[in-house]
Design a protein around this nucleic acid. Structure first.
Length: 732
RNA sequence: GCGCCUGUAGCUCAGCGGAUAGAGCACCGGCCUCCGGAGCCGGGAGCGCAGGUUCGAUUCCUGCCAGGCGCACCA
């Protein structure tokens, strides 16, 4: 709930700070800033709804007994006319707490009114609730960024789920958000696949997915390098051809990357994850971003040519004087090798400069494909007049001319490659992908964003913590260049990896030590859980369950709901852990639909929807996807709460009121997992309410009030799930 | 060797310097002709070790022990 332009929590903090400043307590050093006032939920509801130990902290400084300080704070709060409408009772307890009891009826009335009036905007982070200016500026988020040489696995899934929820959070706070998916399509990443295709002559089985085929091929080739030196030699030769360009091998390399990138998109689209721009590393190279950055860096004095020492002959950025680097043996980072070639870090630095719009160079852009949402996904390209007619070239199989037909061909449906070929299989996959998501795509024209791509005020790179050093170098590099503001706004959104539980590893056929706690995934060995395999398993399990519960549904209806539940299970599992926690992946945990899981949240939502349907007079069969009606008695106006609330009603209303605060805190602390926490607490509050009091059979006035709570809950739950990218089924 | 992160219930995880450290899973026992049993209620068990700061430490600091990850002219 929003009070006085901020969240309820921050409003209470501000009133507390004000009371401290006004009261007889006001010593100069006893005036905490509003955001510094400690405010917590007491362990026992008998103490009230909120409680602050601030008097305890100030007592020492004021050299007065804590209970006296608390009593004076209580008196000052009771004189606050702004607080009066919300607080019914203020008490002081034991060592020196001041407890606030909220006026449950007033709170419930306000929260229901707001939720029903604002609908899908309820819970948006109010301006003035974050330290930084809410909604000011553009945030560029890079996530997913899977090497386009094999299928996505569950580690990539964690990245995408975190990144996507982050993007949704920033949108809720009113920021302009641009999501980029970086694709490292340079020769080396696809070289192993090329060895398999060219040297070993491998081809996919009929019907086999391209990215799955590459997964196996990558494993096979890597396993054979040791025994067969000729293969390593072949790799070098193919790599050279790729780097020379303008030959069949180079074209095949591009095709391999493009096909995999498209499958990665399918994987993510299934989960409701979408992008604004694909940025290709090969374009960064081809457009000379690094050459340009090199000049900028040299002119800015950030780059040194070493004539002696271990880095002799290289261009480096010296970081010895940067905090965090001093202790290192060799803190300087090489950007240009002694043979004159640029390192990965160099390209990344150029790209980072571009993201902030300070490189002085830009890509060219072209629509790549239309996403199931109807929004176009754009791609960087190197040529202003690029015409991508060649099959397998980026930008789609047809010339993207901005109408719906281009969307069809870009996703493959407009093509008819020879049956049984690699491409035929890929195209079929795309048709299924786009048809299967159930989007309500509008015939939107492909128009680039009016302000252009990049030029961000803040850049967030979602990359696992193993890349911390590189990200630190990036920030330090910006600083060395004099881009202080950009350095501060360069955020490495790091998170721990996904490992396999010993049991999961064994199920995948890996040999596991008896004592092993977790097993790292290993792409080269093919040990890992493919993202789509997990989603498929989740979907199958849900489908069985749904079919048993709804024998009257068509296969398509069952599939639709099963898909929603699968997304709920997988995304919740991937988002609910703290960033610094290694996810020890276990099939049983990820596919559990009971307790603290996505489907539990969805179930609470479906139950609420069911009550609303019945209240609106709905009878007969219920089909998935039908909108939830608003009961007529709620349309008359905001329901009036009874004088005394049931504890379960009060608890639910409070939880509903917390939504904007939960989202604000998730942004502030950079913790998508907090959204999961909140969602689970919200769901249990509703379930408690559901168990404790009847709605439909309650006396009329109470019934209307409770229906208001149910409707407000349904809306809040849907909005919360939306931040997590989880669908809110109305039946399941 | 240096740096960063993590040690909380049998397992997987929460925990904002504050009151009786919370969930889920697993296990055991219950749930009324009642709005959906993917639910609800009840049960047991825990802060790696040792110091320190503080009125108060799972939380902050130091040391030790254990685990993970970094420390490229790889990407």
């Amino acid at each position: 709930m929003e009070v006085a332009g901020t969240t309820l929590f921050r409003f209470l903090q501000a009133r507390l700070a004000g009371a401290l400043a006004r009261s007889a307590l006001r010593a100069p050093d006893a005036r905490p800033a509003a955001r510094e006032v400690p405010l917590e939920v007491p362990p026992d509801p008998a103490f009230g709804d909120w409680s602050t130990p601030v008097a305890l902290r100030l007592a020492g400084r004021l050299r007065r007994p804590p209970l006296d300080v608390a009593a004076e704070l209580k008196a000052a709060l009771e004189d606050d006319p702004d607080l009066a409408p919300w607080v019914s009772q203020i008490t002081v307890s034991r060592p020196g707490y001041v407890n606030l009891r909220l006026d449950g009826a007033a709170l419930a009335a306000a929260v229901v009114r707001q939720a029903l009036a604002r609908r899908d905007r309820y819970g948006d982070v109010p301006p003035g609730s974050l330290d930084e200016a809410v909604g000011q500026g553009k945030v560029l988020i890079e996530h997913t960024a899977i090497n386009p040489n094999k299928a996505a696995h569950i580690g990539h899934l964690r990245n995408a789920c975190i990144g996507d929820t982050l993007a949704r959070l920033y949108r809720k706070a009113g920021f302009r958000v641009e999501v980029q998916n970086y694709i490292d399509d340079t020769g080396t990443t696809v070289a192993d696949v090329l060895v398999g295709l060219e040297t070993l002559g491998r081809r996919p089985e009929p019907g086999q997915r391209w990215d799955y085929f590459c997964w196996d091929l990558y494993t096979e080739v890597n396993a054979r390098y040791e025994q067969e030196p000729a293969l390593a030699e072949a790799r070098r030769r193919l790599l050279q051809l790729v780097e020379e360009g303008d030959n069949d091998v180079a074209r095949l390399g591009r095709l391999v990357a493009d096909r995999n990138a498209r499958w990665h998109l399918w994987t993510m689209w299934r989960l409701g994850i979408f992008y604004d721009l694909l940025s290709w590393e090969s374009d960064i190279i081809a457009l000379g971003f690094w050459r340009h950055a090199f000049d900028v860096l040299k002119r800015g004095g950030a780059l040194q040519f070493e004539t002696e020492g271990p880095n002799a002959g290289c261009w480096v950025v010296r970081l010895g004087d940067v905090p965090g680097f001093e202790a290192m043996e060799n803190p300087d980072k090489i950007l240009v090798r002694s043979d004159g070639t640029a390192t990965y870090t160099a390209k990344d630095l150029a790209y980072q400069l571009w993201k902030f719009g300070v490189l002085g160079r830009d890509f060219y852009y072209q629509p790549y494909t239309r996403q199931p949402t109807g929004r176009w996904l754009w791609s960087t390209v190197t040529d202003p007049g690029a015409s991508h007619q060649e099959v397998g070239e980026r930008g789609g199989e047809g010339e993207a001319d901005g109408d719906g037909q281009a969307a069809e061909s870009a996703t493959g449906a407009g093509l008819a490659p020879p049956a049984g070929t690699i491409l035929a299989d890929l195209v079929e996959g795309y048709r299924l992908a786009v048809g299967g998501y159930g989007s309500e795509a509008q015939g939107e024209l492909a128009e680039p964003p009016p302000e252009g791509f990049g030029r961000a005020d803040r850049v967030i790179n979602v990359i696992d913590i193993r890349q911390k050093y590189l990200q630190d170098v990036l920030r330090a590099g910006l600083q060395k260049l004099g881009y202080e503001a950009q350095a501060r706004q360069s955020v490495h959104f790091g998170y721990e990896v996904v490992a396999l539980s010993p049991q999961a590893a064994r199920e995948l056929g890996a040999e596991v030590d008896e004592a092993a706690g977790a097993v790292a995934m290993a792409g080269r060995k093919g040990i890992g859980v493919k993202a789509d395999d997990l989603v498929d398993l989740a979907r199958q399990k849900a489908a069985t369950e749904v079919a048993a519960r709804h024998p009257e549904w068509s296969a398509a209806e069952c599939e639709r709901v099963a898909h929603q539940i699968a997304v709920g299970a997988v995304r919740y599992y991937m988002t609910r852990f703290n960033l610094q926690t290694v996810i020890v992946f276990d099939f049983a945990d990820a596919l559990n639909y009971q307790g603290n899981t996505g489907p539990y949240l969805q179930y609470a939502h479906a139950r609420a929807a069911s009550i609303l349907r019945k209240a609106a007079g709905g009878a007969g069969p219920v089909t998935p996807g039908a909108p939830v009606p608003v009961p007529a008695e709620l349309e008359a106006g905001p329901p009036e709460p009874p004088a005394e609330l049931h504890p379960a009603e009060a608890a639910l209303a409070r939880k509903l009121a917390d939504l904007p605060e939960a989202l604000a805190r998730a942004i502030e602390t950079g913790s998508p997992a907090l959204v999961c926490d909140y969602a689970y607490g919200l769901a249990t509050a509703f379930t408690d309410f559901y168990e404790a009091v009847p709605v439909l059979t309650a006396p009329e006035r109470v019934r209307t009030f409770r229906l208001g709570l149910v409707a407000a809950f349904r809306q809040s739950m849907a909005n919360t799930l939306d931040v997590l990218g989880i669908p809110g089924p109305t039946v399941m």
